[in-house]
Design a binder for these strands. Sequence first.
RNA 1: GCGGGUGUAGCUUAAUGGUAAAGCUGUAGCCUUCCAAGCUACUGACGAGGGUUCGAUUCCCUUCACCCGCUCCA
Length: 535
Amino acid sequence: MTTATDHQRMEKIVSLCKRRGFIFQAAEIYGGLNGVWDFGPLGVELKRNLKDYWWRVMVRERDDVVGLDGSILTHRAVLKASGHEDTFSDPMSTCKHCKRLQRADQIWPQIEQSDWYDALAEMFALGRLDTPNLQRWAETKGRRDAPNLAIVRNFPVTLSWLSERLERTGGGAELPMREFVQHLATEQFNQTGLVTPCPHCGGELTEPRPFNLMFRTNMGASGDDETSIAYLRPETAQSIFVQFKNVLDTARKKLPFGIAQIGKAFRNEINPRNYIFRSREFEQMELEYFCAPEDGMRLLDYWLEERLRFYENIGIPRAKLHVLTVPDADRAFYSKGTYDIEYEFPFGVQELEGVAYRTDYDLTQHQNASGKPLEYFDEETKAKFVPHVVEPSAGVDRTVLALICEAFAEETVTDEKGKSETRTVMRFHPRIAPVKVGVFPLLKNKPDLVAKAREVHALLKPHMMTFYDEAGAIGRRYRRQDEAGTPFGLTIDFETLGERGDELRDTVTLRHRDSMQQERVKIADLLGKLLPQVM
RNA sequence: GCGGGUGUAGCUUAAUGGUAAAGCUGUAGCCUUCCAAGCUACUGACGAGGGUUCGAUUCCCUUCACCCGCUCCA
């Protein structure tokens, strides 16, 4: 459950993200674009660090995974074969009374399964759909199960329209049952025409509106005819499946092996929500790990553990993660097992990543649709088969948001004079922190300090993201970096210059963000000390 | 898509049918020997469009965005 406190916490996080330059609304000066966000200077560093670390552990440090960068514009046939085009272009209707949103093509099957339909169907079958029977039904079962059906709400008016219609068509005998039900749902025929009732309450449904979760576009000069249709990909996975054969032929890999990809994907979500959590344009980090059929279930569990370890390594504690074993009923029909890795966001426990055993569904679909063999020949067993696949699929933006939520902290600090104030600090793991180290001359108006500080800055710059700041009091600069989540601060002072003896010459103050503790470090030792912590 | 709420400077908040105010932040300068010190100056806002009005940030309508609830989430 989310509470008011969680809500306030989330608002503070959103505010900080804007104030410090992590996340901005897209096209803000034009009023914003629904469900689309831009990453500012700190946000892009954070996001890049996350992606780089994923790529490092998922691709570069493994012998059994190679990378791919597929196109965003996607051939229509790809998404036809994958099932996306059909699944995503259903017309949707809304009930004007109970407000339920439903797939238009499933309305009649649902009506025919509904409680209120049975008695009507029976009367219809027996030829007993006369006024007294209808009225009795409307006042009893109808009132209970379909309170918003026109014949229930307004019996006389609806009946008069129905009678008129029956007269014109020469009695109800030729009228199909569905049309009859539509008449019972129609209160003002002249205004609305025949109404299809809501399966849940009998209320009037809106005209079906096509709702396609995929963004469609047109390619080529010829413009907008059927043949020019292309889509922005709704997931990165499909280009991996489509290029499976090419990678297999060129990368010299044997099963089991994986193909990894990081990239943008687009879904025209009905309702983007929760800050950047559900956006219409988002980024995925996906691995398709191909294997023999008998290894699928084992590898599903293997990858779940690998991925949980990943989140711990970027600073999201295991205790804040939940593993949901997706029940059979909620799983895609082709999946033999799916785990959702969820995080405790302030707005609720929500999915960061799905780890799914997708069987050989995708490759088989593309093999059948393209007519090109996508099989694997095992030299040892001499067996030829379509590989199965386990897919850990993570949301970049969701994980960035989780990192931000996890890092955000407010603490009360009391100074020497006993005055207490709030310190806002982003406790990012040094590995993913946008800026690794702040470099400060203790005082701005002492040229020797400034020169030395610039020297130290230049030393570190090629190796990690740094920030140089000489403006204002030193404490102020520390606190500013706390809000940005910079784990280390280096201050060049008079000791550095050798004014307190040679012992301290060329040493600097290293200040730690979380503890605010300081230590003395030789400039020559800085890289060796800091680099391992930020890698 | 429906219902409810909210939109004034980067942030937090004022006021007003008649020149939009402040604190913090930011920037520049002075000062400053380790945790948002001080002084000076500056930048900067009524989400957008239309209507009513002599005049609208204020009243009305539309629209956009964000938040909450439903719904949706292959």
